[in-house]
Computed example of a mutant assay.
Amino acid sequence: MSDAPTLLTAWKSAQTALKAQKIDSPAIDARLLLEAATGCTRLDILTDPYRAVTADQQATLDGYLERRLRREPVSRILGRKGFWKIILNVTPDVLSPRPDTEALIDVALLAFEPGQHFHAIDLGTGSGAILLALLTERPAAHGVGTDISSEALAVARENAANLGLDGRAAFLRTEWAAGFGDRSFDLVVSNPPYIPSDDIPGLDPEVRDHDPVLALDGGPDGLQAYRDLAPEIMRILKPGGVFAVEIGWDQGPQVKALFEAAGFADVKVVKDLGDRDRVVTNGPDPRTTPIRQG
């Protein structure tokens, strides 16, 4: 009987190695790396578990595991990350999108009917994740993403093209909403940097060593971006328009107060699936309103 690894033994062995180093979600990480190294799918692992893994495929998997054990995120190793219902290319120039941010998508989808035409802007767009997830769900919508990083904008444009959304999404290099006219947008979304500067060294290595500091550092108290954004969002939002910004779990009251001071009414703090404060918005709260799917 051959001792060559199979999909099943390679998966289990990879899981064991990751578990031993206390890596979060070892089963999922091991599966994603195995799929990438062998070209198999999740279904293949279930239905053809004894398929042989070649020496070259095992060597590729070992290389991936080595990087993951050094705390490099799977999204960086593979150069792509799933977010909402889309797959995005990610590079060291952009924040790797996180499931927490999907709470912001929930709010935005509630605010606009599936067939409704509206114009959105994503401030500090990075990989384009938020804007592209929204446009995927709302086919009559158009949007623009801004960023001060030319490298990030190149990634966002590539993601839009890969998703067939480049006809409805534009990406421009500017600081937040600089250059856009007053009352231009029906929806304004943003996931700005909100980590206090002094907290960055204590972040998990996957974030601290692999996400761009520009996308993390929110200044001494983590709130600088919101001070800049609140009046700008008030300026560019149409009357009756909706804004939604992601926040750190402990920043709800302070960010809500900043947007109220900028003139917004009915500002609320929305929780994510982990029951932590995650979004400040003047839009609907998914916990009290059913989501309209397209």
Rank of each mutant, 00 (worst) to 15 (best):
R183L: 13
L18T: 02
G128P: 00
I148C: 11
V188R: 02
P286D: 08
Y194V: 01
R31A: 13
A133F: 07
L32Y: 04
A37E: 06
P26T: 09
I77L: 08
L95V: 07
N162K: 14
A257H: 08
E35S: 12
K268G: 13
G240E: 09
A169K: 05
I200K: 08
D3W: 15
T174C: 12
T6R: 09
R168D: 08
E260I: 01
G145P: 01
T136S: 15
K81N: 10
E232G: 09
S96F: 10
R276T: 12
D228C: 13
I86H: 10
P253Y: 08
P286G: 05
S96I: 12
G219C: 07
A161L: 12
G222T: 05
V245Q: 00
L163M: 12
Q21V: 14
F185Y: 12
G145T: 04
A55S: 13
R168S: 11
L78F: 10
A14H: 08
P196I: 05
D211Q: 09
R67D: 10
Q293F: 15
V188C: 02
G283I: 00
D285Y: 03
Y194L: 07
R67P: 03
P196W: 07
R70W: 10
A59R: 15
L172V: 15
I148F: 07
W176Q: 06
P239Q: 10
R70G: 13
P5W: 12
T101Y: 02
T54I: 07
S149R: 09
A244C: 09
L229E: 03
F83L: 10
L43E: 13
R287A: 15
D100I: 03
V269R: 02
P192R: 04
T125E: 02
A154H: 10
T289K: 13
L216P: 04
A55E: 14
P253V: 11
S25L: 14
P99H: 13
G82H: 15
G126F: 00
G164I: 04
R227S: 09
V144I: 15
E206F: 08
V155P: 00
G143Y: 02
D29T: 06
L65Q: 06
V207R: 06
A141T: 02
L258A: 04
R168L: 10
F243Y: 05
I105G: 00
E151G: 11
R168N: 09
P73C: 12
P114E: 07
D277Y: 06
A108I: 02
I247N: 01
L123Y: 05
G39D: 11
E72P: 08
S75N: 11
V53D: 04
A55P: 04
S75M: 11
G283S: 03
H142K: 15
L258R: 03
I105E: 00
K81W: 07
V53F: 06
E102M: 03
G126K: 00
L165R: 02
K256W: 09
H119A: 12
V144P: 00
P284Y: 04
D3I: 13
Q57D: 13
E102C: 03
V269I: 14
R71C: 05
G124F: 00
A17T: 12
L229N: 03
L214Q: 09
P97T: 10
T136Q: 15
L34G: 00
V90C: 07
L223Q: 01
P139Q: 10
T146H: 02
L132Y: 05
A225H: 02
